[in-house]
Design a protein around this nucleic acid. Structure first.
Lengths: 142, 142
DNA sequence: ATGGGTGCAAAGGATTTGCAACATT
DNA sequence: AATGTTGCAAATCCTTTGCACCCAT
């Protein structure tokens, strides 16, 4: 129950803290496994029966637009979100599909406009793909 | 008309060079603007009336699985492809939506399994977001 | 009463699937 | 014959849109 922390994050990004927004922010802060829209919706709807998927979509999109969360497009099939806005690489396992943080690995700094041929960069995402430790030891099956 | 080059690339990746595959590979070699499925289909169907979208989907997916092309998921709305398999960063403009190569910028090398906490990495994608030179000079409108 | 926030149902779009027709060895 | 390839139509699934309702200021 990090409603306090969630509210503080919303406030610090100029987002009015409604019940839904606090619930959604709390959810992605507690579940650091890069939940999808569906994950968030399913995780919350039991204790929040009136919640709608639309609100989850709108809210998470808004969070990422205001840098209160990261939108992750590493999985071609669906978007997922990361409540940790600290830049860090992500990894997706080709076998189990899970998305992991790779906190130990370096993340390139956003190049300046001069370094980047006139492109104004405001965000970077580094995605790695392969096999996670669990799936790479079980190389026998499949 | 780089059918020769396209065939060679297919062959070097163990892909049987059918008419459709050569046409699709040629298309992404000639159009280095990261075409979507729809782009490829529209670009080819005029000269290849029997071509189906399904074949474009299947073929490009297969190309990326066999490392004959890169699947790019920088745009949350749709996947696009890059015929250049040389690792390099990509950039998407938040305003015009175009995807660009950033050849001048460095690309992290895939970390070894030891460096990556047991994760077996076989591919890396580095995505930058922001405003492209054209859209960032036209900052007045919008 | 005004404006933002929410939620429902419907629409929209991208992608995949099932299967039959074809080609190729 | 056997195998791999293609293409159509339908199905699926994710996401967005339009609009009405509600709540707080």
């Amino acid at each position: 129950m990090q409603a306090k922390e969630a509210s503080a994050i919303l406030a610090s990004h100029g987002i009015k803290p409604t019940l839904q927004r606090i619930a959604i922010m709390s959810y992605i802060l507690e579940h650091r496994i890069h939940p999808t829209i569906e994950d968030v919706y399913n995780g919350l709807v039991a204790n929040f029966p009136t919640l709608s998927r639309t609100t989850v979509y709108n809210t998470l999109r808004m969070f990422s637009e205001r840098s209160a969360a990261q939108m992750i497009t590493i999985d071609e099939h669906r978007v997922c979100y990361d409540g940790d806005t600290h830049p860090h690489p992500h990894f997706i396992c080709r076998k189990c599909g899970q998305v992991f943080d790779l906190m130990g690995l370096p993340m390139p700094v956003c190049p300046s406009r001069e370094e980047a041929d006139g492109f104004m960069i405001d965000e970077a995402q580094l995605y790695y793909k392969g096999l996670c430790p669990d799936c790479s030891t079980t190389t026998v099956e499949d």
